[in-house]
Design a protein around this nucleic acid. Sequence first.
RNA 1: GGAGGGAUCGCAUAGUGGUCGAGUGCGGCGGUUUGCUAAACCGCUAUACGGUUGAAAAGCUGUAUCUAGGGUUCGAAUCCCUAUCCCUCCGCCA
Length: 416
Amino acid sequence: MLDIRFIRENPDIVKTAIKNRNMKLDIQEVLDLDSDRRKILVEVEGLKAEKNTISKKGKPDQAVIDKMKALSQKVDDLDKKVEGIDEKLGNLLLYIPNIPHNSIPIGSSENNKEVRKWGEPRKFDFKPKTHIEIGEDLDILDFPRSSKISGSGFCLFKGLGALLERALINFMLDLHTKEHGYKEIFPPFLVNRASMTGTGQLPKLEEDMYKLKDDELFLIPTAEVPVTNIHRDEILDEPELPVYYTAYTACFRREAGSYGKDTKGLMRVHQFDKVELVKFVKPEASFDELEKLLGNAEKVLQKLGIPYRVVMLATGDISFAASKCYDIEAWTPGIEKNLEVSSCSNFTDFQARRANIKYRTKDKKVEYVHTLNGSGIAMARTVVCILENYQQKDGSVIIPEVLRPYMGQRDRITKE
RNA sequence: GGAGGGAUCGCAUAGUGGUCGAGUGCGGCGGUUUGCUAAACCGCUAUACGGUUGAAAAGCUGUAUCUAGGGUUCGAAUCCCUAUCCCUCCGCCA
C-alpha cells in the first residue's frame, strides 16, 4: 500500500508507475475522495470538540441535553460519511501497486535484463531424459498414484526421491542459518485473512489461494506470508534490525488460470516445498540487502552445481507489491528450459505499511521498515534440475556432493 | 464439543457512568548531584488521522484509540450484545 500523503503530493509519480507496469488504473477518484475526506474531518472534529467540552462540565440541564442531542445527530451523520469514504478509499489503495525502482528496465517481460550467468550447461553424449522419465525409471516419482490420491498437479516422492527432498530442505536451512546468518522459523501453514492481506496476496489474488470456508483460513502460498506477518502490528527497535528469517514450509497454490502451462511433472504443482528467506531492514539498506539476499539464494545453486542465470525483471513483470525483483532461472537439459527456481524482491515499505510493521529510530522516530523476501530456493523445481543435470547414461543420478551428508553418504540414486 | 474466568499506556497494576485530558510502580530517556559507579531527587515517556505556523528542523492545536465491532446514554475504560485471543476445568484426541 502506498501512503495516501505520498499519492496526494506526487500523483504524477504514481501515474507513471502504473503506466510503466502496463496497468490501467485511474487514481483521480482516490485524490477526490481524499480531499472530500479531509474537508468533512475538519467539520466533524470541530463538532466533537464542542461535544467534549460540554460533557466535561458534568450534569447538564434540559436545554443542554437538547443541544447535545442535535450535535450528536450531526456528528453521527458526518461520521457515517467519513466511514463510507474510508472504506472506498481503503479499497482503492489496496489496488494501487508499489512504485518500481528507477534502476529497473521499463517495459514488459521482453525487457527483462539478464544480469549474469553462472556455470556451463553440461554436454551430454546421450539424449538426456526428462525428470518425469528419470523419476519413473528409478521409481522415485509416482505421478499416476499422486493423481489417484489427490488429483492432477500433485506429486508423490518415494524412497530416495523422498530422501532427496528432505536432504534438500535440510541442506538449504543449514546453509542459510550457519553461513548466511538467518534465524530458522517453522511457522503455521494456515493463516488468517489479515495475514494474507498484510503481505498483499489479498484481496487481488483470492482465487489463487486455497481457502477453508468454515474457518476463514487460507493455506499459505509461500512462507513469506506467515513469516512476514510475525511482526505485523509491531514496532521494532532499531538495534534489532536487520532481522533475517529462513523457513521451510510446504506451499499451496491453486494455479487457477494456468491450465495447460508447464503442467507436466514437477514444474507447476499445487503443493511444493520451499525454503524461504525473509528480511526486515532499515529503509536506507534495503537495496543492498536485496543484492545480498539474491547472493544467498544463488549460493544454493552454486553449491549444488546447477547452472543458472539471474534476470532483473522489468516494470511490467514485477509483482504488485515489489519495487525491484530478480528471478533466478536454472537450466534443465531434459525439458530444455530455464526454470524459475527463485524470485527475490524488495518490497520497500509497501508490505510494511499494509502489515503495519515499524521500527523506532535512535532519536525516537517511528518509521516503516523495508521488507524483502526470496526463495532460497523452491524445492520441486530444484529436484527437476538435479535429476536432469546429474543423470547418467545408465539411468542413475549422481547426488551432488553437498547433499551426500544428508543422504547417508550415498553418492548416487539407483533403482532400489 | 461443554462450563467458568480474563484482555487497561513497553511490563505490572488502579480505575463500576461526568473531575479519566487514564492514576501508580517498574523499565526507558534527559537532567541535578558525583573522582567513578550506584543511590537520591527533578522532568519526560504511545500511535494514527486532520488543521495550522515554519524554508526546514520543529512547534502549536483538534479528533480518535483502555482487544475488535455493534448498542444503551446528554455523556462509556466503566453498562449491554457479538467476535477474537488467552487462562482454568470437563470431554475427545496424535
